[in-house]
């Protein structure tokens, strides 16, 4: 297979990774409730699986995780939508009354993810680099030094920009969740 340059290639890679992550997530979790599965481990497993496939072969591990972060985000968002208890007017949502949902915050977690997702969209409009930073850190598990390499800035810049992005996102998320107490908040001084 020849991978095309540019956009097409990214789309191909993204689709590949997305579907692999989804497969992995479903496969693992089906067997084990409360397994030690996290986005980071999923991405790692996807890398093991896909590293030799022709579309991915030319990509460095770091860039793969970049793509995987984006894909992971999409997977989680899709999953969150699926789980969301909110009834929407579009009529396309599946309403769930499934009792066997694990965890106590069954309602809040999907909402949190969706709020984060839309806040990230907002962030990307005012600072694409910071959005990439957050995405990479959150969904791809990249650490500060890796992010510095990926974004081609210093580690100090990464730290600084993370801090302000964090604050901005927090403001946005709080707003979009309408002030509902999703998770416990503690004010520290």
């Amino acid at each position: 297979m020849i991978s095309a340059e540019g956009r097409d290639s990214f789309d191909e890679q993204f689709s590949l990774v997305y579907e692999e992550l989804r497969r992995l997530a479903a496969g693992v979790l089906r067997g084990e409730q409360n397994g030690r599965v996290t986005p980071t481990t999923l991405v790692h497993e996807a890398w093991l699986k896909l590293a030799h496939s022709p579309e991915i072969a030319e990509t460095s591990p770091l860039h793969f995780r970049r793509i995987a972060a984006r894909a992971m985000r999409q997977v989680l968002v899709d999953a969150a939508r699926r789980r969301n208890a909110t009834r929407r007017g579009s009529g396309e949502m599946l309403v769930t009354f499934d009792e066997s949902v694990p965890g106590m915050n069954a309602i809040s977690e999907p909402r949190d993810i969706l709020a984060l997702d839309s806040a990230l969209d907002g962030l990307s409009r005012i600072s694409a680099r910071q959005a990439k930073l957050v995405e990479g850190r959150f969904f791809g598990g990249l650490d500060v030094s890796e992010l510095a390499v990926l974004l081609e800035v210093s580690e100090a810049t990464v730290a600084r920009e993370w801090r302000s992005a964090r604050a901005w996102l927090a403001v946005e998320i709080r707003r979009s969740l309408g002030g509902e107490p999703g998770m416990a908040e503690v004010e520290t001084h």
């Binding site: 986005p39 999953a79 604050a167």
Partner: peptide, 26 residues
């Protein structure tokens, strides 16, 4: 922003592991 900075942000600080586990139940 400064105000939010002072607060602990459960989601943003702890990462997504818990949330992911919760939603990834296919």
């Amino acid at each position: 922003l400064l105000q939010e900075d002072r607060r602990s942000q459960p989601l943003l600080d702890a990462g997504l592991d818990q949330a992911a586990r919760a939603v990834l139940d296919f």
